[in-house]
């Protein structure tokens, strides 16, 4: 990897990259057909595609002579993990609260 790795948030912080993902939810697309949706140059689109690929949000597959971009689950899983983190955080804290209440106060 020539570039420093971006965290999952940085990867999808860019509106163009989010739009690429949005386009890919409908269909897998070649870089050229992706580029048709943007004002920027094809190399610029390629750069975004590379970042999304490195971040695990898309994969690139060669089909015939074309390179197709398609969504990949991995990057999205990292985002889900963040929510999952707080889910288990609260579950363990509430268990602690339960134990604490039960130990401190005689039941009525």
């Amino acid at each position: 990897m020539s570039q420093p790795a971006l965290d999952v948030f940085q990867v999808i912080a860019d509106p163009s990259r989010r739009q690429i993902l949005q386009l890919l939810t409908k269909n897998s697309l070649t870089i050229s057909s992706l580029a048709e949706n943007f004002d920027m140059s094809r190399p610029a689109v390629s750069k975004h595609v590379k970042i999304l690929n490195d971040g695990g949000f898309i994969s690139i597959r060669n089909i015939g002579r074309e390179r197709y971009c398609m969504l990949r689950q991995e990057g999205f899983n990292d985002l889900q993990q963040w929510i999952g983190y707080f889910d288990s955080f609260w579950a363990s804290k509430l268990k602690k609260l339960e134990a604490l209440l039960d130990s401190r106060e005689p039941k009525k």
Binding site: W90, A91, L94, L97, L101, E105, K107, K108
Partner: peptide
């Protein structure tokens, strides 16, 4: 998360 506590 919903928890029941036997306390007021």
């Amino acid at each position: 998360h919903t928890w029941f506590f036997p306390h007021s």
